[in-house]
C-alpha cells in the first residue's frame, strides 16, 4: 500500500473509488468493466498531469517520500556482485554512507552513497542518511582506493545533510566534508554522481563534486533545506514552500544553471511507484556516462572536473 502525499489526494480518491467499485462488483452480475476502465484512465491521466507540473516544494516531498528507492534498492536493481567495504580506519564505520565494489553491466566500479533506510529500525541504523565524519572519511578511503586501482567512482547522493551533533563536530565534520570534496576533485578516474533523492548541502556536495552530475527528475538539490532557509530568511519554517521556489531546488532549474548535466526520467508518479523501473533507467544513464568518460585520460578527466566548477559563477 502506497502512502499518498498531500497533493496526491485527488489521485488517492480516484484510486480508492476504483478499489471500492471492484470489491462491490465481485460476485455481482453488473458489468462495470467499462466504468472501471474509464476511471483507471482518468486516474492515470490525473497522476501524469499532477507529476508533470510539480512545484519545487512538492518535488521536495516526493524526494523525501518514505517509499522512495534508496542506495540498497539501487544496488539490488542496478548493480551485480556488490562487495561492501567498511570503516574509515580511524574511528568506526558509519552506516549512513555505504560503499564498495560493484559491477554495472560488467563495468567494475567503486560505488558510494547515502542510505536513509526504509523502516524505523533501518532508518535509525543508517541515521536517516545523515553522514558523520567517519562516513565521509570512509568515502575518501574508497575514492583513493578507486584511484589507485583504476576504477571509476559512481556515487548516489541522498541526504538531508551531514549529521549535526556534538560528536560529529568534535571529530571534525567540516574537515571530513572538505577532504571528501577534495578527494572527488583529486580522483584520476571517471566519476559520475547522481542526486537520487535529496541533495542536502555540504553533506551532498562532498560526494557530488564529479565531472558528470545526474539528477532524478523529481530529486532536489540545495544549499540548505527549504525549512532551514525559510526559518532564517522568513523567520518561520512555514514559508518552506516559498524558500523551495526561491532557491531553485529542482533538477529542471539546476540543469539550466549548469549545476547538473543530465536529468534521469522517473516512472509516472515518481520513483517510489516503480523502484525497479526507476533503477533500470538510472543504471542505463550511468552506464552511458561511464562509457563516454572511459575514453578520456586521467588529466583530461581531472581538467574537465575542475573546469566544471571553476566556470560556475563566471557565465
Amino acid at each position: 500500500m502506497i502512502s499518498y502525499l498531500e497533493f496526491e489526494k485527488p489521485v488517492a480518491q480516484l484510486e480508492a473509488r476504483i478499489a471500492e467499485l471492484r470489491s462491490a462488483a465481485e460476485g455481482d452480475d453488473v458489468d462495470i468493466t467499462k466504468e472501471l476502465e474509464r476511471l483507471e484512465v482518468k486516474s492515470a491521466d490525473l497522476l501524469a498531469s499532477t507529476y508533470s507540473s510539480l512545484t519545487p516544494w512538492q518535488k521536495t516531498q516526493v524526494a523525501r517520500h518514505p517509499s522512495r528507492p534508496h542506495f540498497r534498492d539501487f544496488v539490488e536493481h542496478i548493480f551485480d556482485d556488490f562487495i561492501p567495504l567498511g570503516g574509515d580506519r580511524n574511528y568506526g564505520d558509519d552506516e549512513a554512507i555505504l560503499g564498495g565494489f560493484a559491477r554495472l553491466d560488467g563495468r567494475r566500479v567503486v560505488l558510494i552513497g547515502h542510505e536513509k533506510g526504509n523502516d524505523t529500525e533501518s532508518r535509525i541504523r543508517h541515521n536517516f542518511g545523515m553522514g558523520k565524519p567517519e562516513g565521509y572519511r570512509k568515502a575518501i578511503r574508497l575514492m583513493e582506493l578507486a584511484g589507485r586501482f583504476g576504477l571509476p567512482v559512481v556515487t548516489l547522493v541522498d541526504t538531508s545533510g551531514a549529521f549535526p551533533g556534538i560528536e560529529a563536530e568534535e571529530r571534525g565534520q567540516a574537515e571530513a566534508i572538505a577532504r571528501s570534496t577534495e578527494a572527488c576533485l583529486a580522483l584520476p578516474t571517471p566519476m559520475v554522481a547522481t542526486i537520487v533523492g535529496e541533495g542536502g548541502s555540504g553533506g551532498a556536495v562532498a560526494l557530488a563534486s564529479a565531472e558528470r552530475v545526474l539528477m532524478f527528475e523529481h530529486a532536489v538539490y540545495s544549499v540548505i533545506s527549504p525549512e532551514g532557509c525559510a526559518s532564517i530568511l522568513w523567520r518561520t519554517a512555514e514559508k518552506a514552500p516559498d524558500a523551495a521556489e526561491a532557491m531553485r531546488v529542482t533538477a529542471q532549474h539546476l540543469k539550466k544553471l549548469k549545476v547538473i548535466d543530465r536529468i534521469v526520467k522517473e516512472p509516472v508518479g515518481g520513483a517510489h511507484r516503480d523502484p525497479e523501473a526507476a533503477s533500470k533507467t538510472l543504471g542505463k544513464a550511468i552506464g552511458q556516462e561511464l562509457d563516454a568518460l572511459a575514453k578520456m585520460s586521467s588529466d583530461e578527466i581531472r581538467r574537465m572536473r575542475e573546469e566544471r566548477f571553476l566556470q560556475i559563477g563566471t557565465n
Binding site: 572538505a178 570534496t181 577534495e182 572527488c184 576533485l185 583529486a186 548541502s201 555540504g202 556536495v205 563534486s209 538539490y221 540545495s222 544549499v223 540548505i224 532557509c229 532564517i232 530568511l233 526561491a246 532557491m247 531553485r248 531546488v249 539546476l254 544553471l257 549545476v259 575542475e306 566548477f309 571553476l310 560556475i312 559563477g313
Partner: peptide, 22 residues
C-alpha cells in the same frame, strides 16, 4: 556559511575553492 540567496550556486563555491587549494 553559504549565501542562501544564491542557492545552489553558493554551494558550488565549495568545490570551486577546493580546486584552487589543490
Amino acid at each position: 556559511g553559504a549565501r542562501m540567496q544564491e542557492g545552489i550556486l553558493s554551494l558550488m563555491q565549495m568545490p570551486k575553492a577546493t580546486v584552487m587549494t589543490r
